[in-house]
Each structure stands twice: as structure tokens, then as C-alpha cells.
């Protein structure tokens, strides 16, 4: 099932399916290890509701919901 990373709940896990973003943000996400097939765990949402903290390739990364918008995930039923 397809789901957007930004609509993930806390502790939800999924795999990246594809990324739709401007080339600058896309390249940055790729450089940080968010590529198709990567497993991402949503660890935390900041106190003010944005940004979010995810675990990817064994480390913690923070990104805004607006930047996570284009990250389309594949989750189990």
C-alpha cells in the first residue's frame, strides 16, 4: 500500500517507493541515504508538530513535513 512519509504515525516503518521533489531537495535526500528501497522509521515529531525525526540507514535524520511530502512509501497492509 502506498502512503506518504509525512502522514506516518510515530514508530511506523516503511520502505521508500519513489521521491517526487525539486532536484535540489531530491539530491539532498539521496545524499543523506533516502533512496528507493530504503527502510525508514518515523521516530519522533517535534513539539510544535514539525519537523519530524526519522531513522534511516542506522542514523537519525530530521526533515520538515514539507520536504517529506514527496517521499512516497510502501507499507505492509
Amino acid at each position: 500500500m502506498e502512503k506518504l512519509l509525512k502522514s506516518f504515525q510515530m514508530n511506523e516503518i516503511g520502505k521508500v517507493k519513489r521521491i517526487e521533489a525539486t532536484s535540489r531537495i531530491r539530491q539532498r535526500l539521496f545524499d543523506m541515504g533516502i533512496t528507493p528501497g530504503t527502510e525508514i522509521l518515523l521516530k519522533k515529531i517535534a513539539p510544535l508538530g514539525d519537523p519530524i525525526e526519522v531513522r534511516v540507514r542506522g542514523y537519525e535524520l530530521s526533515l520538515r513535513k514539507s520536504e517529506a511530502e514527496g517521499i512516497i512509501m510502501e507499507v505492509g497492509e
Binding site: I25, R28, M32, E60, L61, S62, L63, R64, E67
Partner: peptide, 8 residues
């Protein structure tokens, strides 16, 4: 953008 590593 705010794509940033959070160190341990």
C-alpha cells in the same frame, strides 16, 4: 530546507 543529521 532542513534536512539535517541529529548526532547521538
Amino acid at each position: 530546507p532542513f534536512i539535517m543529521e541529529l548526532p547521538a
